[in-house]
Amino acid sequence: MNTEFLEALKDLEKEKGITVEVLLEAIEAALLSAYKRNFGSLQNASVHIDRETGDFKVYSQRVVVDNVDDSRLEISLEEARSVNPSYELGDVVDTEVTPRNFGRIAAQTAKQVVVQRIREAERNIIYEEFANREGDIINGVVQRVEQKNVYIELGKTEAVLAPSEQMPGENYHQGMRLKAYIIEVRKTTKGPQIMVSRTHPGLLKRLFEMEVPELHEGVIELKAVAREAGYRSKIAVYSRDENVDPVGACVGPKGMRVQTIVNELNGEKIDIIKWDPDPSKFVAASLSPAKVVAVEVWEEEKVARVIVPDYQLSLAIGKEGQNARLAAKLTNWKIDIKSESQMEEIYKQEGYTEYYQEDYAE
């Protein structure tokens, strides 16, 4: 070791952000392990690197005692005072024991330690960068597909798209560019593991924030998202400015904004609904594209009974109940859908001759 080596460590400090002192302490610890492994594992020892010259020395450490039982670990008071008269019982005496051929081992060990610390530092930098981006979108290129896991290249690292986070019917191939939502960043011995999703509702939210300036600026607020990835989604939006139509802003001129998102999600249908503080109006709107005649709400139980024209019943429920299911997720209300003829029967049984009607169409 020499001053050139110390200068190289200082350059690394500037480039990688690893302090010289941290590197030197790590090298000292590694050299101590190498010494014990090759020369004297049964004795106490320490390694010191001179911070000015870069020279290193190995010292054996022996405790000052009255009676020496093991000369590798202990030294008599008389012998210790021959080195330095100030030594007392219980003090530790350092004696240099640097082997003549230890230089080659020291150089190899130092190189290994520095390379390892650089890798650790780079991994930590990448981890910190992506740990702060949980809940954000990444844009990458599919690198490979292994055991149904899709690995997406992100420059210095890669993200993993697990089978459970992949969209139904979506085929992934090498070189394919796609956007995904960061759901978790894990710290592992091999570096950060970035888990992403194509099915998370957050992906839809972020895509709209990217495409709709009013959302990014805060003029429009995205109140709720309900998603069945690959099939259909519903979002509820609200405008803080009465002059800005939240639905129109999300749809965009000639539907261009929402169509960009639909294309990114491979044709997933998206219903954009105007959020309303009145639960009955919000529940009615959530069943779009079905038209609603009336809504009865029980606020404490968060239950709503929705009445639709007979010919709209199947549309309101949706294929395999999808529309009703998404509306319930979006509003966080339990929704019971009845047709007009079904309600007439119910009201007759309850002794009413008619039920309240209101046009909920936007």
Rank of each mutant, 00 (worst) to 15 (best):
5 F>L: 12
9 L>I: 10
10 K>E: 14
13 E>I: 01
14 K>R: 15
20 V>W: 03
22 V>E: 09
24 L>E: 01
26 A>T: 10
27 I>Y: 06
28 E>V: 10
32 L>Y: 04
33 S>D: 13
35 Y>N: 04
41 S>N: 13
45 A>E: 13
45 A>Y: 14
48 H>Q: 13
52 E>T: 12
56 F>K: 05
75 I>L: 02
78 E>A: 12
79 E>P: 11
79 E>V: 14
82 S>G: 15
84 N>Q: 14
88 E>D: 15
90 G>S: 14
92 V>L: 13
93 V>Q: 03
101 N>D: 15
102 F>A: 11
102 F>R: 03
114 V>L: 04
114 V>W: 10
116 Q>T: 10
117 R>N: 04
123 R>W: 10
124 N>K: 08
127 Y>T: 08
136 D>A: 08
138 I>K: 02
147 Q>F: 01
147 Q>M: 02
149 N>V: 00
149 N>C: 00
150 V>A: 09
151 Y>E: 02
157 T>F: 09
157 T>A: 09
167 M>G: 00
170 E>C: 05
172 Y>S: 00
175 G>N: 12
177 R>S: 10
178 L>Q: 02
179 K>V: 00
180 A>K: 02
184 E>H: 00
189 T>E: 03
194 I>N: 00
195 M>A: 06
197 S>C: 00
200 H>K: 02
207 L>P: 02
223 K>E: 07
225 V>C: 11
236 A>C: 08
237 V>D: 08
248 G>N: 01
250 C>V: 01
259 Q>A: 10
261 I>V: 15
263 N>Y: 07
263 N>P: 01
269 K>D: 03
270 I>W: 05
271 D>T: 09
275 W>I: 12
279 P>A: 08
281 K>T: 14
281 K>S: 12
281 K>Y: 04
282 F>Q: 04
286 S>T: 07
288 S>I: 05
290 A>M: 08
290 A>L: 07
291 K>A: 10
293 V>W: 07
293 V>D: 09
300 E>L: 10
303 V>L: 13
304 A>N: 05
305 R>Y: 07
316 A>T: 12
319 K>E: 15
330 L>M: 08
332 N>M: 03
332 N>Y: 01
333 W>K: 09
338 K>E: 09
340 E>Y: 07
342 Q>S: 14
342 Q>F: 05
345 E>L: 15
352 Y>I: 05
358 E>F: 13
